[in-house]
Write a protein that binds this DNA or RNA. Structure first.
Lengths: 215, 215
DNA sequence: GACGCAATACTCCCAATGGAGTAATTTTCA
DNA sequence: TGAAAATTACTCCATTGGGAGTATTGCGTC
């Protein structure tokens, strides 16, 4: 059902699950004027591609094995602000949605959203709207989401160590694995507790999980 | 590429993400003789359907909003042992794969698996093999996965305390909250570590989460 | 009423974690 | 190239957690 007087809209998908990409292919193919330009299962490949190329819409998973979507979105929007970025995620935590929108995303879609809902969001985002998929919309007020929220910014090493802690490894094991002193692990651990504003590593892990900083 | 002298293989998909279902539709449509019979985004709907109907293959997500796949698989296999159940999941935790296989699943696929890998697994499962997707296979030895694994049986109090620990509360806080001695909390904590066969409470929490013992 | 089990509470001892600093070296990037 | 940030490593001290054991009370149930 192509409308000849409107140009095609190119879409790029970033998600570490090939099956999810297959799913979005279906959704995109059912959308008017939408053409899938490329897809990626890693943040790095996507970044390399975006150095040279562009797209009209990027569907961006926020939890990727080699990077976090919030950061990715921020960087992309700095270089190519005209691109419409729609975050896709499992998480309906208020703070992470906030973070994503404040990083310049044009919308936030849950992976539990129906294809029709996704297409409607894409269409509205193209028209300049900031969009939330239905379930997110029913949970949060878009206006209220514009208050500032602080997700701690972790360094690579800190994220790496937090992930190991979250897997149940002790400082000594982590030190051995990373060829550093247990005392250094202790330092990172302390920094993590500070950044998450808690004195309990289990709480830090929980927050990190919510914010999508794990895995 | 249908082969007329072989009958069609009916597939049912259970996953709470419509996009993932769309993806599996693509994968199934590219498979020889595979026909998608139905799909569900909730455990309950699936169970109701399976009371009256059957299928050759069930692709079963293990994390569902209203149930856990391990239990679902066990129940399904009791009623209809001929059905080939392939678990699909994000988790590559040894213990959960073990648990799934011991609940009668015919295989375990990661959501990060490539479509070709998934089709190959389906084909081999149809031939009677117990299959693991490529990445799982490289991590674990199938034989080793057949050692018995058990979900620990927790008492009410233990589950209650584990939940509080998982929320990041310390023994002292828990004691205060439950009007018991911190030493009693310590005893329960020790019992939990024993039952989960670990010396690290984070690992106990992770296992409990996987087994659906939390919240 | 005897038995099993859950829940309670304690002992001693040692290892691990958390709090608060200081500081050198290496990487990153403007 | 120079400044800022990240990574490394340490000190001292207090609190918490983990290992191993013992023991009492109370509640179902067979």
């Amino acid at each position: 059902m192509l409308n000849n007087d409107q140009k095609l809209v190119s879409v790029v998908i970033v998600d570490d699950h090939p099956v999810v990409i297959e799913g979005f292919k279906n959704v995109v193919n059912n959308g008017e004027q939408l053409v899938l330009k490329n897809w990626f299962t890693s943040a790095l490949d996507f970044q390399v591609f975006m150095e040279e190329e562009t797209a009209d819409i990027v569907l961006l998973d926020i939890t990727l094995p080699d990077g976090n979507g919030i950061q990715l979105c921020r960087e992309l929007k700095q270089k190519q602000p005209q691109i419409i970025v729609l975050a896709i995620s499992n998480l309906s935590e208020r703070s992470i949605i906030q973070q994503m929108l404040q990083s310049g995303a044009n919308g936030y879609l849950l992976k539990t959203a129906e294809p029709a809902d996704i297409l409607s969001c894409i269409k509205r985002a193209l028209a300049g709207e900031i969009v939330l998929s239905r379930e997110v919309n029913s949970l949060f007020d878009l206006k209220a989401l514009n208050e500032p929220a602080e997700i701690p910014e972790l360094t690579k090493r800190e994220r790496q160590i937090l992930n190991l802690i979250a897997k149940g490894k002790k400082s000594a094991q982590i030190a051995e694995e990373l060829f550093i002193s247990p005392l250094t692990v202790k330092t990172h651990r302390a920094t993590l507790l500070q950044k998450f504003e808690t004195g309990n590593i289990v709480i830090a892990i929980n927050k990190a999980r919510i914010y999508g900083l794990l895995e």
